[in-house]
């Protein structure tokens, strides 16, 4: 399955989401390949530094891809942005599509107001995933984000949430 991770606005976390997805899908036991077709090349450099090896027979190929390179051959498109920049984006691909709204405000009163706007976007996508502002991700550590764990499950066909909020009770790692 070809998965394109894209978005027009820079700095919203496309590369981070693409890499997180790569890591989680591998942890879930899938064979995953990665292609960096972005302008910044950050993911490619990161993967070379950690010794990532290409997989010749992957279940998933994750592309970190700029919008102008999206060619319609993908099976799934993941649009990554932040809510204030959603107006800069287009999502008219004829594929399955997921919206990832990254760095959601940590202030509950503002978040609840923003949810009203997010609700209007939900019918436009197969899934909408809201990722909270997360200090681990901000510092480049690709761990401890249950909303992105759930995104990985959706991509793998193990979940089909229409809307994923930051508060997720059934964290997969939890054992009480």
């Amino acid at each position: 399955m070809k998965v394109y991770v894209t978005g027009r606005k820079g700095g919203t976390g496309k590369t981070m989401v693409a890499l997180y997805l790569l890591i989680r899908l591998k942890i879930m036991g899938y064979r995953v390949d990665f292609k960096d077709l972005s302008d910044n090349g950050i993911a490619g450099t990161y993967l070379r530094n950690v010794g990532f090896r290409r997989d010749p027979k992957p279940h998933f190929i994750i592309y970190d891809i700029k919008p102008s390179a999206v060619d319609g051959s993908q099976d799934l498109t993941i649009l990554v942005t932040e809510l204030p920049f959603i107006k800069l984006e287009q999502w008219d691909w004829p594929t399955k599509k997921i919206l990832v709204l990254n760095k959601a405000t940590p202030f509950p009163d503002k978040f609840i107001r923003q949810l009203e706007e997010i609700k209007t976007l939900v019918p436009e996508f197969d899934s909408v995933v809201i990722v909270p502002f997360n200090g681990f991700l901000f510092n480049g550590e690709l761990i401890n984000e249950p909303a992105l764990d759930r995104l990985s499950q959706i991509v793998a066909g193990k979940a089909n949430d229409k809307l994923v909020l930051p508060f997720i009770e059934e964290v997969s790692r939890q054992i009480y």
């Binding site: 949810l115 200090g135 401890n144 930051p166 508060f167």
Partner: peptide, 21 residues
């Protein structure tokens, strides 16, 4: 200070469940 805590201590602020909202 909220952002200082989130970034410095590596935390998240995930609000409430949808039912609670």
């Amino acid at each position: 200070e909220m952002f200082d805590v989130l970034i410095g201590l590596r935390m998240r602020s995930s609000h409430f469940s949808l039912d609670c909202i």
